[in-house]
Simulated assay, not measured.
Amino acid sequence: MAPPATFAESMALQEVMISSPPDIKNNINDAAPTGSRRVFKSTGPAFVPISGVYGGHLLGQSAYAAYKTVDKSFYCHSITGHFLVGGKPKTPFVYTVETLRQGKTYCTRSVQVRQPTSQNNSLLDSEVIFVATVSFKTVEPRGLESQLPPPEGLERWVSNPRGREIAPAVDVPSWIEFTKVKGMRPFYTAVDLRKVDVEEENRSRPLHEHRKVQIYKPVGPFPPEEQSCLSICTHIYASDRNGMFAVTAPHNASDNIIHTGSLSHTLIFHANPEKLLFPDTAVGEEGYFNPSSWTVLEQLGDSASEGRGLIRSRIWSADGVLLASVMQDALIRVRVDNGEKAAGKDNKRKPTFSESLKSML
């Protein structure tokens, strides 16, 4: 198996000059006028949990593409993405970034993502698979400050990162068993994400208060000039990982999934860019596992209904600063009646995730 890609390699883009209209800016530090457009093509690998592309890759790389069109005094403070069509693992992504507004302290970019095939005459003629709105702002003087208190288990969650198991690509019991039978080792790519066992803590909680906890940090060093940008993109990338199972796991229904996927995903940062940094990405092994350098992703399944689930997440620094809040609307169809019919467009019996894996053994 090839070594995991670094986060910087995973985000890599090259600009594509489709045409040269007068509204396209060549200097990324220039403030582009409303309506200007720039196009970028991915060059790095996308993480593939099983067969489809990881949604967090599209979120993070959309933000990274948008970053290339704003002045360095701006940082991303929020992003909302809508997943339209599943991505193909071996096909590059094309990101079209349009300037919606350019202000002095806030600016907004729209990003459309496509995956052109060799049959397309134009990179921009193919189907849009993902759209995002990315908002940027400048750093402001200190003002009002308040936040939720950090969770009681936070200090324990970040302790001993080396001893935490690498989070499975799909955090479902049947998948974990499948990988053991197949002799597949857990691995990470782009972001080192580790699972924290909170099963005992969840036993006494109602279903909607069950938590899923993971800790993470990026893999590999960042170029100094992109330290802030790539740190923020790391948080965006990680925020989508295994979140849907925060809805199914409290119901013991993860193995009974028939169809699941993100519909929309919103992340809002609360902290200034300095608090969002991963400054020690290039340190040696001992420093790498310093608990204070890891970030906590706390996920809760607030609602399950109408074939969908709502995942509410919080991102915490190791010292208890609320860095960001996340809301994710996901398609989640599971078999709940053990009968022949399944939720969906028709009445045909569809195999559950567990049944599909058993057929592959």
Rank of each mutant, 00 (worst) to 15 (best):
P206R: 13
S254L: 06
E165N: 11
D197E: 02
R205F: 05
V172L: 13
D171I: 08
A190Y: 00
S231W: 03
G220N: 09
P168I: 06
V247Q: 04
R185P: 00
P173F: 14
H251Y: 09
S228A: 09
V170G: 04
V196M: 05
S262T: 15
R194G: 00
H259V: 09
K212Y: 08
L207S: 08
T248C: 05
A167Q: 09
P206Q: 14
P223G: 03
D192Y: 05
W157H: 09
I215W: 10
S159P: 02
F187M: 15
V158R: 02
K180G: 02
A190N: 02
T260M: 14
D255W: 00
E177R: 10
R164I: 00
E225A: 14
T234V: 11
F245Q: 10
R211T: 13
K182D: 00
D255Y: 03
H259Q: 09
Y237A: 04
V181F: 00
H251P: 01
L193M: 13
T248V: 11
I258P: 01
P161M: 01
K180L: 11
L193H: 04
D171C: 14
H208M: 03
T189C: 04
P218Q: 11
P223L: 08
D171L: 15
I176S: 03
P223N: 13
G261D: 10
P186M: 06
P224H: 07
P223T: 11
P250D: 04
G163D: 05
S228C: 04
T260V: 12
P224I: 00
I232C: 04
A167D: 13
H210Q: 08
F222H: 06
I215K: 11
G261I: 12
A169L: 15
R194K: 10
L263N: 12
E226D: 13
K180N: 03
V198E: 01
H235F: 07
R185S: 07
T248M: 07
Y188N: 02
D255Q: 01
V196N: 01
D192M: 08
P186Q: 09
R211V: 14
R241A: 06
P218L: 09
H208E: 14
G261F: 12
G220I: 04
I236Y: 07
S262A: 15
W157V: 12
V181D: 05
A167W: 01
I176Q: 11
